[in-house]
Design a protein around this nucleic acid. Structure first.
Lengths: 233, 233
DNA sequence: CGACCGTTTGAGATCCTTCAATACCAGTGG
DNA sequence: CCACTGGTATTGAAGGATCTCAAACGGTCG
């Protein structure tokens, strides 16, 4: 109970894995197969809405290319982005009849659709698919828990550093830089801060020589060790 | 897929449902059956650890009574509580070999254990169980997304109000009051704030006549409308 | 009764937000 | 070719919500 501080600080080692969930480079062949049986990708223009939270979840999507943001909007219009999806990610893998979040295209996006009927049928028949879905949902749960730590406990600079590490892992372009397709506002709504604070943190890192930022949406990490130190958690 | 669907589609207004996820009074018979085949409950004393994040996830648990907190701890000892579990909840429903969080008994707790082997076997054989697990994980994902909105966007008083509404829903005692078994520190670590701020918010509500608080761990909501208004999101 | 643990309350410090101005870049039309 | 426009990003200054530190309070249990 109150042994809190005692216990927890001693955990150091086993806990490192906790907060920053390394992206699992797991392929979901069954899911891909199911999805790809569904014809050529549908193109969605940057900025447009793919589906709205609460709408009937009649169709699932597989992201072929581009970036999608998954948002929750409060009644008074505040937006929290729960996740960015990229190439290879699945949307709307849920047991429910309604979408649990709003999905919008950050960049131009290519999607493969799969009806819920086809998905449910495949889930009944294909054990491998079931395993994939189970894995994906478990991964999603781990990821959202990490994000909860970020939102609940980390400082602005820790959040920014964590974000850059995540992006370096997911959006690396050929020269090892990060290609950000989302705006500062998107990043802010993902990290639970304001766009100004995001900008300040990035520019602080730049000034400190931890990153370089030739353009606002192209970032190169120059001191990875330091960035990881800053991300701490 | 799920009887649950009905509850969800009744989604009053699409967006309102987003942030505060009404607790679904869904029974998971298959899971209960699986779990209950496993003998009498194990008793765990308040304050003790049930399992640690990162430990081999050899056994799943079903909470029979009491309250459990699920925590992530950062390397430097900051703690985020991702969830409180109560009677009827399942722990460690994951696809992975390691627990994704640390589970600790908030009050005295009774648990039923189930080995991962038995669970995996049942998952292969029992379609109804699979549906239940799918539902539970989808529910968990919806819940954690709501919590992300709370952590990322809500003010201290909104968080406190939201928390009280959640507790009123889950921890109602016979006279309609809320029995809090967790400390202010626990609540703070769940809501992403400090224990002092939690205390201040509760006492502000008390002063405003929205709640009464005969003892720190027994709260009665006197003005539900106002509390819901404050929770807003 | 006294010690202890959790809670409450106060006062000051701080980090982040807010508001506002400026800079930057791409696209458009004169 | 260059000014103009709109959208995004940066930067500054001031204010505020929450945290931190610290003291006092209250219930519980030897």
């Amino acid at each position: 109970m109150s042994t809190l501080s005692m216990n927890y600080t001693s955990y150091v080692t086993p806990l490192v894995a906790s907060t920053i969930q390394k992206r699992v480079s797991y392929q979901a062949p069954s899911i891909e197969r199911l999805m790809q049986s569904n014809g050529r990708p549908q193109k969605v223009k940057a900025g447009s809405t793919i589906f709205l939270e609460g709408d009937p979840a009649d169709v699932l999507y597989h992201v072929v290319s581009g970036v999608v943001r998954c948002c929750q909007i409060t009644p008074d219009g505040r937006r929290q982005i729960s996740r960015f999806l990229t190439e290879g990610d699945e949307m709307a893998l849920t047991a429910f009849d309604a979408y649990g979040y709003t999905a919008e295209a950050v960049s131009d996006v290519e999607l493969i659709r799969c009806t819920r009927g086809a998905f449910n049928k495949a889930m009944q028949e294909d054990a491998e698919l079931r395993d994939s879905v189970f894995d994906l949902m478990a991964t999603a749960l781990n990821t959202t828990r990490s994000q909860m730590v970020l939102l609940g406990k980390l400082s602005a600079s820790e959040r920014a550093a964590t974000f850059l590490l995540e992006m370096a892992d997911r959006f690396q372009d050929r020269d090892g830089g990060i290609q950000l397709s989302m705006t500062r506002q998107d990043i802010a709504d993902y990290l639970g801060m304001t766009l100004e604070t995001v900008s300040r943190m990035f520019n602080k890192f730049k000034k400190e020589g931890i990153i370089s930022m030739p353009t606002p949406d192209h970032i190169q990490v120059s001191d990875l060790d330091e960035l990881e130190l800053l991300a701490a958690a």
